[in-house]
């Protein structure tokens, strides 16, 4: 323990003097600025405008009765044309004919996904049915997961800021550490001391876990205050940082310097970032992406930050994470032992 404590003090001093802590604080400040200055909601106005020329405007009345936005239902053609002119990306829907034989014209000036148009058509058919006084079908809705409140826009990035930044920082900065020791030759001095493998690995891992916790606390506190589920959040941050630091340390051991490491290291970081795409566009979630550890992490963090009742997700992620961590530790121990601490 004495050895680990000495190494930890040394590595913390070096992390401070090498500017690693300053870099992390600067990134945290940027994230806090995004949280503070982004609005909670962005009002973009209606995505479509509907002109009901059916005598008596029954569709307009039915839509408003169903809770539709009156601003999207102009009463005159002049107003309709003016709105479409002001909102070139909006979809223009014109209803004509009669309730029994309605005509629907949908026009767009930009490409609109087919799914969106299909939804629009289905919505219009439903409103027409209501206007005709027909009984609406009562579909059975099964929720696959608990319903959750919408996450404010300015807070929606926090799971991403935590899951990916913490990993990048651990993976990248520990490599910088290792290459500095190689360049200065201090690793050779360590090799002829009784320091050993585990104290070396543990010291680096603890340094970056502490930095990651500091970063995470700043970012989460800025968004959610002190009422967050800190146990789960810290647990996930510690795991993410440990995993990526240990993996990064083992990975860096195979390269001579930062230039030699750069492209392979970047490739691994990009691979780790792919779940970010799935998180933002959930339709793109191929099975192989879901295997990447950061995939489960980002959703578990979202659950910890904005609970939907699926708390088991956090436990499952941490449990799976332990398996990943064990593999990363084994890889790191082998790499550091053979490439850094033992003569080739």
């Amino acid at each position: 323990m004495k050895r680990l404590s000495v190494l930890l003090r040394q590595d913390l001093t070096l992390a401070w003097r090498n500017g690693h802590v300053a870099v992390v604080l600067a990134i945290a400040a940027t994230m806090v600025a995004l949280i503070v200055f982004l609005p909670a909601e962005v009002s973009r106005g209606p995505g479509e405008y509907v002109l009901d020329t059916i005598p008596g405007s029954p569709v307009r009345a039915a839509t408003i009765e169903l809770g539709g936005d009156a601003a999207a239902l102009p009463e005159s053609r002049e107003r309709f044309d003016a709105l479409i002119a002001d909102h070139p990306n909006a979809i223009a829907v014109e209803l004509s004919g009669t309730l029994d034989r309605p005509g629907v014209t949908i026009s767009t000036r930009t490409a609109v996904p087919e799914q969106t148009l299909n939804l629009l058509v289905a919505g219009i058919e439903q409103v027409l049915a209501v206007a005709r006084g027909e009984a609406l079908p009562d579909p059975q809705i099964e929720f696959l997961r608990p319903e959750a409140e919408a996450v404010p826009l300015n807070l929606s990035g926090i799971p991403i800021f935590l899951a990916f930044e913490v990993g990048i920082l651990g993976f990248l900065l520990v490599a910088v550490f290792v290459f500095a020791e190689k360049q200065e030759g201090t690793i050779r001095a360590y090799r002829v001391s009784p320091g050993g493998l585990w104290a070396y690995v543990a010291s680096k891992a603890i340094v970056f876990v502490l930095i990651a916790i500091g970063y995470g606390v700043i970012v989460v506190a800025a968004g959610l205050g002190i009422t967050a589920n800190w146990g789960a959040i810290i647990g996930l941050i510690v795991w993410a940082s440990l995993f990526m630091t240990v993996l990064g340390l083992g990975f860096a051991a195979w390269f001579r310097n930062l230039s030699h490491w750069f492209f392979p290291g970047l490739a691994l970081l990009i691979l780790n970032l792919l779940p970010f795409v799935s998180y933002v566009y959930p339709v793109w979630s191929p099975a192989w992406v879901t295997v990447i550890p950061s995939y489960g992490l980002v959703y578990a963090l979202r659950e910890a930050l904005f609970p939907t009742g699926d708390s088991a997700l956090i436990g499952r992620t941490l449990l799976t994470g332990l398996g990943w961590l064990a593999a990363a530790v084994a890889f790191c121990a082998y790499s550091v032992h053979t490439r850094l601490l033992k003569g080739a």
Binding site: V6, L14, R17, E184, S193
Partner: peptide, 23 residues
């Protein structure tokens, strides 16, 4: 060592103090 290999960001005293802690 022939080529001086010390932590440039640590003082001379810190270099020795931390190294001593390994034994």
């Amino acid at each position: 060592f022939e080529h001086p290999n010390v932590f440039g960001k640590l003082t001379g005293l810190e270099n020795l103090r931390y190294h001593a802690g390994l034994y």
